[in-house]
Computed example of a mutant assay.
Amino acid sequence: MASTTQQSPYSRIIGTGSYLPPNRVTNDQLAAQLAARGLETSDEWIVARTGIHARHFAEPDVTTTDLALVASQRAIESAGIDPQSIDLIIVATSTPDFVFPSSACLLQNKLGIKNGCAAFDVQAVCSGFAYALATADNFIRSGANKTALVVGAETFSRILDFNDRTTCVLFGDGAGAVVLTASDEPGVLSTALHADGSHASILCVPGNVHGGAIAGNAFLHMDGQAVFKLAVNVLEKVANEALAKAGMQASELDWLIPHQANIRIMSGTARKLGLNAERMVVTVDEHGNTSAASIPLALDAAVRDGRIKKGQHVLLEGVGGGFTWGAALVRM
């Protein structure tokens, strides 16, 4: 008797959502705040070096999972599904509500999902969403799960040193989410993930909780020049790796959505791939670097304004502390 092999399902994005806290801080407003601390900066200085015009900061009583909740609700509504059908929740964050339990478990409760589905966090900093999406894709392809909620959410304002103008002007708070479901048609075409811990010191928060207090430094530290040099190099490589896995060329892409960190890094990556600026989704100007939230924020913005259409090919890629980097090629 001939044996048959059941093909594993693909995963496809069927809904997107995002949320930025309402407190929008312009460069001029931030410059005024820093001036009160004796630090000099300006809108022109920030825009020229980063492309950022504003960022959003959560209020003190608003947590990462509060932001994730709204983004998730919008993604679930966009997907048109019953939240109880979600059987996997993955939250990418470097700024969780607590040491534990995970933000994913807290989000599960806030969403009222009572089906006992698996829920866990992924910590890969600015590459976190790429890591989380690849993880959910593999769970679905294996047949273990059918519908996954994948979230990137951050409150980076809590770990910024506002006495360091080289870092505090770069980051903001926000959340983005997608719903992935099993599909007979390919959606996530390929993923590629990498890390190199030898570069940990160039982008880190070198502190921890010890004896009920913070040991070390709980503020973000970044060597901007070292990060820039490494980021442009690895982003080009991982983008080409994801394309090669799917048997595609960069010229076949409809859209590039890089991690929204710095317009110079983003533009440099696009040029190396031979893509013009019109094919790159840019939202960094309005929310700054939101770490794991930046890719799904940009994806949702482009889906909702009609730029990204069903059937188009979108390359998502990110690089972050760890050092980590990853990419996902998606057919919408």
Score class of each variant (00 low, 15 high):
Leu170Gln: 04
Glu154Phe: 10
Gly143Ile: 08
Gly176Asn: 08
Val169Glu: 08
Ala136Gly: 12
Thr181Val: 13
Glu185Tyr: 08
Arg165Ser: 11
Leu160Ser: 02
Thr147Asp: 00
Ser157Phe: 05
Glu185Thr: 15
Asp164Ala: 04
Glu185Ala: 15
Arg141Asn: 10
Phe162Pro: 00
Pro186Tyr: 07
Phe156Leu: 15
Gly172Asn: 09
Glu154Met: 05
Gly174Ile: 03
Phe139Ala: 04
Arg165Asn: 02
Ile159Phe: 13
Phe139Gly: 00
Asn145Tyr: 15
Asp137Cys: 10
Leu180His: 07
Thr155Val: 15
Thr155Ala: 12
Thr166Ile: 00
Gly143Arg: 15
Leu180Cys: 03
Ala136Trp: 12
Leu170Glu: 05
Asp137Ser: 09
Asn145Met: 12
Glu154Tyr: 10
Asn138Tyr: 07
Gly172Tyr: 09
Phe156Pro: 01
Arg158Thr: 09
Gly174Trp: 07
Arg158Ser: 11
Ala148Glu: 04
Phe156Lys: 06
Asp164Tyr: 08
Asn145Asp: 00
Ala136Met: 09
Leu149Arg: 07
Arg158Glu: 03
Val169Ser: 06
Asn145Ile: 00
Ala148Gly: 04
Phe139Lys: 08
Ala177Val: 08
Phe139His: 15
Phe156Ser: 10
Asn145Gly: 00
Phe139Ser: 01
Thr167Gln: 05
Asp184Leu: 12
Pro186Met: 05
Thr181Cys: 14
Asp137Gln: 10
Arg141Phe: 02
Val151Glu: 01
Ala182Gln: 13
Ser183Pro: 07
Val179Cys: 06
Val178Tyr: 09
Arg165Gln: 11
Val179Gln: 06
Asp173Arg: 08
Gly174Ser: 03
Ser183Gly: 03
Ala136Phe: 10
Phe162Met: 14
Asp173Leu: 10
Arg165Met: 06
Arg165Gly: 01
Gly172Thr: 06
Ser157Ala: 02
Val150Lys: 13
Ile159Ala: 12
Ala175Glu: 04
Leu149Val: 02
Glu154Asp: 08
Val150Thr: 05
